[in-house]
């Protein structure tokens, strides 16, 4: 996993709530056996019409919006546990997803792939949407060490939560398997003492 550093970037706004993982990457595109290339089908059915032509009104097809930060409405990533959703967002080029609420499995999947989910208040989320609508070049700064997100050129800022373990993993590019395997003696000990009938 790549190390996560501070991200300062313009944003892609998606002010829709309850974006489920079937919208992020529809099931029919889950048939690959590798992790790469899912970005091409990110938001496939919102992004392309039935003939495969880009839909002009969808934000990813609007060249005025770009950047490494996706900002979405409440309850992002609900539904299926498909990690392909996190892979698709990361593969497309995003490093951060901001929302006022994330589904649990999506959050875990993101953290396991170096994609940082940043949960902000409803008010702060609205502020981001308003600022970006007024000025598409608005930048956000996401500082993982300080656990803060701020709108550049304003005094608007919020802190966000992340467990200390996952924070360390992201900052250093570590993953869970390395950590657990370092504790293998504890697993064997557990197995020896676990309940048997």
């Amino acid at each position: 996993m790549e190390k996560f550093n501070t991200v300062v970037s313009t944003v892609v706004p998606l002010p829709i709530s309850d974006v489920d993982t079937d919208q992020i990457i529809p099931a029919r595109f889950l048939k690959a056996t590798t992790r790469e290339g899912f970005g091409d089908n990110l938001f496939r059915d919102w992004r392309y019409d039935t003939d495969g032509n880009p839909k002009a009104d969808f934000v990813l097809n609007n060249s005025e919006y770009s950047g490494e930060i996706l900002v979405a409405g409440k309850n992002f990533g609900s539904g299926s546990s498909r990690e392909h959703a996190a892979w698709a967002i990361y593969d497309y080029g995003f490093k951060v997803v901001v929302s006022s609420f994330f589904a649990d499995i999506f959050k875990n999947n993101s953290l396991n792939n170096g994609l940082l989910p940043v949960q902000v208040s409803e008010e702060f989320l609205e502020s981001i949407f308003e600022k970006v609508e007024a000025d598409k070049s608005t930048k956000l700064k996401v500082d993982l060490v300080a656990q803060t997100i701020s709108i550049e050129g304003t005094d608007l800022s919020e802190s966000f939560e992340i467990g200390s373990y996952k924070k360390t993993c992201l900052l250093n590019g570590y993953d869970d398997i390395d950590y657990i395997l370092d504790n293998k003696d504890k697993i064997l000990e557990y197995e020896k003492n676990s309940i048997k009938f």
Partner: peptide
């Protein structure tokens, strides 16, 4: 769980 967790 996600696929990274399946691997885990």
């Amino acid at each position: 769980i996600g696929t990274s967790e399946v691997e885990e």
